[in-house]
Nucleic acid binder design. Sequence first.
DNA 1: ATCGTTAGGTTGTCAGGACCAATAGTGGGC
DNA 2: GCCCACTATTGGTCCTGACAACCTAACGAT
Lengths: 246, 246
Amino acid sequence: MAGRPQVVVDRASPVPLYFQVARQLEQAIESGELPPGARLDNEIALAEELGLSRPTMRQAIQYLVDKGLLVRRRGVGTHVARARVRRPVGLTSLFDDLSGSGRQPTTAVLSHTVQAASGVVAAALEVPEGTAVLALERLRRTRGEPLAILRNHLRADLVQLDSAVLEERGLYEVLRDAGVTLAAAQQSIGARKASGAEARLLDEPRGAPLLTMRRTTFDDRGVVVEYGDHLYRASRYSFEVALTGR
Amino acid sequence: MAGRPQVVVDRASPVPLYFQVARQLEQAIESGELPPGARLDNEIALAEELGLSRPTMRQAIQYLVDKGLLVRRRGVGTHVARARVRRPVGLTSLFDDLSGSGRQPTTAVLSHTVQAASGVVAAALEVPEGTAVLALERLRRTRGEPLAILRNHLRADLVQLDSAVLEERGLYEVLRDAGVTLAAAQQSIGARKASGAEARLLDEPRGAPLLTMRRTTFDDRGVVVEYGDHLYRASRYSFEVALTGR
DNA sequence: ATCGTTAGGTTGTCAGGACCAATAGTGGGC
DNA sequence: GCCCACTATTGGTCCTGACAACCTAACGAT
């Protein structure tokens, strides 16, 4: 039974075959049907059982290898990765992450204005200095406790934002619904002391260490969508990053 | 000229064709021959020009898309990514990163002992409590200034370490040369205040914010190789992470 | 018993072809 | 002048077939 989890493909579905297979394998791994270390049948046998070609089967496996769920070694075979890779930092907002783990985030919009871009903001958004940009400052809480101060700058021409909506949902979610495809990001993670005002907002003692995250996000055309400068309470938050050495 | 950078493939070489192409395209992008936003010829034309099949050409392009250097859009074409993605956090040590950017790192081994694994260390290395493990504490400097305190725990049975070697080279480099294949890692990035002793070692004021990085590294069999607990001066160091939303 | 050799199995790479789906530009109709 | 359908272009998916590189384990010679 091991090595041959129950997988069925629907050729009438518009979902790519390799993706159908990948998702079902992923589910089998997460459900424990394929425990860590379990060996899969070889690619040719798997492809034959499912009525697929080997390249398609390989593509499904490759997808899971990239995700860190499977490990392939030539001459040996394909195994379920032993190391449980936790959720990696991805193109998701803090809001997504929190609500995904059932932590009921709430957001307070502290300020929401249109400004003339100047200096670092103009450079980060790759617009001429003086261009009108959206400036956003929010306080994110979870279970009533403050967690992070989120400062964002957006190109004003991209999307219409409403403060009421931003109190209910994450920025990335709103952007995606507005038809913006978030494709890539560059982020820089550091630390510094909290200023007096920041400490007060976050309910931390003066001078407490804060995690800082600067992120520039690009859409699929390579245009800068958003520039964020976020502050997290180091006492309650850390970044998880998973690495695989392709 | 644009869209057709000079690429030649050597079929006698053991280097995979797709990789040869990818490397040369990458070089053309970095040298500026293919500026950001430039459009490549379509896949079929490129493959034909190089005498390759389309799947091989696609594999080369896919490699660079994964790396964030190219952007593909159906019906539109393949373009050089506008956003210059800086070097991402990878399966490299701080030493590799520093020497790669010509910063001449030096290392002082503060302690180097064999201990009985206890509690968190045993759990992190996935060995029974009480197993003999290597404990390592180092101070990394660059240009004479202290940058980080590196605390590592290793399975004692994996590799023989020599303090003199560790003063000269990075831990990961030593491990790789010893035949250990580093395949994946899980790291957690946070921040906290420096203790008195830590502040003294790092030449920071008492209570200065430090970036913390806990990393568990796995080899290609999924066995834990190393567990590291590192402290960086937040005033001189930050983590760069590149994200692509496949 | 130990070490080098060999055989079998498995993933890695590559070719060449076919059809599908999304995009953007064009031209016609309103 | 504006909107919509059409079409050419281009990447996305999938197939068949083949050979190469690599790892493990069993085997035989020393």
